[in-house]
Design a protein around this nucleic acid. Structure first.
Lengths: 221, 221
DNA sequence: AAATACCATGCGGATTTCCGTAAGACCAAT
DNA sequence: ATTGGTCTTACGGAAATCCGCATGGTATTT
């Protein structure tokens, strides 16, 4: 079993829960870090001292605090830790089960397992730890169904920028200018209109405002 | 101390955390319900058997499942339980700290305490249980600062309906019709335009699309 | 090389939204 | 009853968006 595990998780009750699992698995050294920066420093230190962590169990979102943090999300934390220590095992343990988020994390190839905090989360976490230790990877049925489900749709970059500009208050004319300045094509007014019309049809939106709310709810923008 | 506590919370790791607190406080009877319906049935049964719960510790959001639930949120659960048993103590224990949500829950007068799940959540929960037992009410400093902070603004009903219709894809003309049919005033096209202009100015929105995204992010609609 | 398909663009008109002004309605205070 | 204020509505022009069609360029196919 893993010898040295770092847990980056801010909510104390969940830390308690994770703790009981790790005790049960007889992990000799467990370190809890309620802040991302703290987790980063501990991992860096351990690596420098040649006693690196084997596994990171990591939440995705951390509440802001009076402390001002450099690293504010689990994603960033994972990215920097992996770049320092590419062989570090990573299990995401998060309440976040929105298809877009899960897919984007999973596709980043930076994690060995993604476990959702839910009614059976702890036993899944336990299974994940064992599986990652043995096979290097674990995916719960819930996550698998989320990823294979037809409920996720990736919006191309062009569409996303266009829609974000709209959402941020630019008019279509201003977007045209912006695109021309930044060399993004197609940039013509006509193409922008056409693209928006397509999107409205694809997502069954009555109006552009409607389209934006739909896409925001789907977290596509 | 309380004798009989019902915990409505779906995430197992958090149930573990709450459990340790309640053990520490020597609560003789603790019942965990990972589903709202289950919590409802248990409370109803206990009341019928003349051994009602003293206190409900309740999450706000519950993950959907294969089970189809009648009650799907903590808010609803609190509402129905309080209507059956008005003297039931209620502590909300939620990760949700968005000003709008907190304010609306607190203003409903249905809860005795609101504790946010965070780094110190468990000790706050402990303090809340004691305080509710002794004084009937508890507010953490975090919640107090959220509620007194200037960061919350309530949007009047009229504005909310107007904006929701917009977000749901109605044109301003259609909204006018709708308002006339439903007897909502002002209903004229001109008034609708004027109101939207006001809102854009109030929230520094460049366009109506921008306004909608701002308000959605603030969860005012 | 020609044909085809696809895409970006341009344009004109219809619709919708935006904006200011003015007239009427309603209410409250004098 | 009159005045003053606020709110609703009406109207007209400007701006923005929506929509379809036509044109021209580019790449792919034959």
């Amino acid at each position: 079993m893993f010898r040295k595990i770092l847990v980056a998780e801010d909510i104390d009750s969940i830390n308690k829960g994770i703790g009981t699992v790790l005790e049960k698995l007889d992990v000799p050294e467990v370190c809890h870090a309620p802040y991302c920066d703290e987790a980063y420093l501990k991992a860096k230190r351990a690596l420098k001292d040649k006693v690196p962590f084997d596994l990171l169990i990591c939440d995705l979102s951390f509440k802001a605090d009076h402390r001002t943090e450099k690293i504010t999300s689990g994603r960033e934390l994972i990215r920097v830790l992996k770049s320092n220590q590419p062989d570090l095992g990573v299990i995401v343990y998060s309440i976040e089960d929105h298809p877009q988020t899960v897919k984007s994390i999973w596709d980043s190839k930076a994690v060995n397992a993604y476990v959702t905090k839910d009614r059976k989360g702890l036993s899944e976490l336990e299974a994940a730890i064992k599986a990652v230790y043995n096979d290097g990877v674990y995916m719960s049925s819930r996550i698998a169904s989320i990823l294979t489900g037809s409920n996720l749709y990736e919006l191309p970059d062009y569409e996303v920028t266009l829609l974000k500009h709209l959402a941020n208050g630019l008019t279509q004319d201003q977007i045209e200018e912006r695109f021309k300045k930044e060399g993004i094509t197609p940039s013509s007014r006509s193409s922008i209109e056409k693209k928006l019309k397509e999107l409205r049809e694809d997502f069954n939106a009555q109006t552009t405002v409607h389209l934006i709310t739909i896409l925001k709810d789907l977290r596509l923008i």
